[in-house]
Amino acid sequence: MNDQANFTTRSIQVAFLAIMAGVWYGLTKTGAVTPLFLPPMDIVYATFMRLVQTGQFWSAVRVTLFTIAQAWIIAVVAGLLVAYLVTRSRHWTAVMEPLIASTFAIPLTLLFPVFILFFGIGPASKVAYAATYGFFPVALITIAGLNSVDERYLRAAKSMGASSFDTFRHVLFPAAFPVILTGLRVSFFISFASVLGGETLSSAAGVGKAISLAAELMEPARMYAWIVFVIITAVSLNFIVSAIENRRREY
């Protein structure tokens, strides 16, 4: 019966995708929507195939990937460091955690013009912007993770003569590790979206720039080719990450 239910839900999801594709096909083939807004699927596919063969495509992808990697690494290092320093005392946790949390509730996109002012329209401004956005989930989730470690472990470690670094290295960090991983994942996807967003808003290169440029030049087929490429990449990344997480949880 469970298999039956699984089959039904799976087929509904496949049907959803098929209906979306069908609507796309129908709207464009009947001419209900001008190709300027929504070009036919086969043209988008052909454009994508042509795009992949150009050096332009891979250079844009390389710029974006490199920017995401830099931003994420900075976010993770800074986030872990701040979380470590803040959770060293209960007092500072109580002081800093709400400050960090309420800053994260403000749309940090507001700072994007400042990063453009500081770093120009090159990749550096996107790195700064995405690193800022990615820093908060790492810091907040790690603080929560380190705080939730059982007090008894810490007391036991201390009573056996562990230094504060030893405690962190052998007790706090391993105990909070699963939670910290969640922070890293959230931060990665936020950095990913922020880099693309920054590139869309104002940039000289990268995938986001390619999308907004195609829109400005009224080349919808190219724009959709890029958009579909990004969506497929993002969704597959999500699938991979959640598959790994499920495997780990079972383990």
Binding site: G197, T200, V235
Partner: peptide, 10 residues
């Protein structure tokens, strides 16, 4: 899961 910002030009 889609980074919606890429749909902004659209």
């Amino acid at each position: 899961a889609i980074p919606q910002v890429i749909l902004l030009p659209l």
